[in-house]
Amino acid sequence: MHIAEGFLPPAHAIGWTVAAAPFVVHGARAVVREVRENPESTLLLGAAGAFTFVLSAIKLPSVTGSSSHPTGTGAGAILFRPPVMALLGTVVLLFQALLLAHGGLTTLGANAVAFAVVGPWTGYGAYRLTRALGAGLLPGVFVGTVVADLATYVTTSLQLALAFPDASGGIPAAVAKFLGVFALTQIPLAIGEGLLGVLLFRALTANARPELERLGLLRPAPEAAP
């Protein structure tokens, strides 16, 4: 649910860009530092960004028969951490605007707040909290991806409500309206994205255990008996 170009009044577009800036700059600093220490991480980070873009191109079937695309914000945050996702997510949003006509340039800031900042941070927070409460990787991933998707959608609804307060009920009524309308598509999608996240990480634990251990998502397994 990317806010289309021209949909937000100029003041809002500028405001959200200013709000996104510190997070994106923080992410950019992290990336610059990483690349200065290991020049080859340019390629790994590029691969991570490309994966995030491609993840959102996966068609998820829904029970209603239509299909939808995951946001990728939760899985990305768990894999690559929220600071880096703030930057990679913004790059991906720029590419989505220019390659797929999803979103826009003046609404890039607003979309970045929802998709690259709030989604990843809350999703990652929910993931860490779930793990801290003793849950395993997969329950953590489920909660993290569902929360990230929902947080993204709630943020977008808030952004729209702030821009278009209800004529009689004001902002609170507008929030309810936008949440209500987009809930139809977003709640099933959030659960779908959570399932996809679980299946993704389950496949990764079978296929790519060493990588997950390196990313710190799994404890190194004790040496298996030969």
């Binding site: 491609v54 299946l199 389950r202 496949a203 990764l204 790519a208 990588e211």
Partner: peptide, 13 residues
């Protein structure tokens, strides 16, 4: 789709 996403991620690495 889960297997697909995992395969693409491993390919990207």
């Amino acid at each position: 789709s889960g297997a697909l996403a995992a395969a693409v991620l491993v390919r990207s690495w």
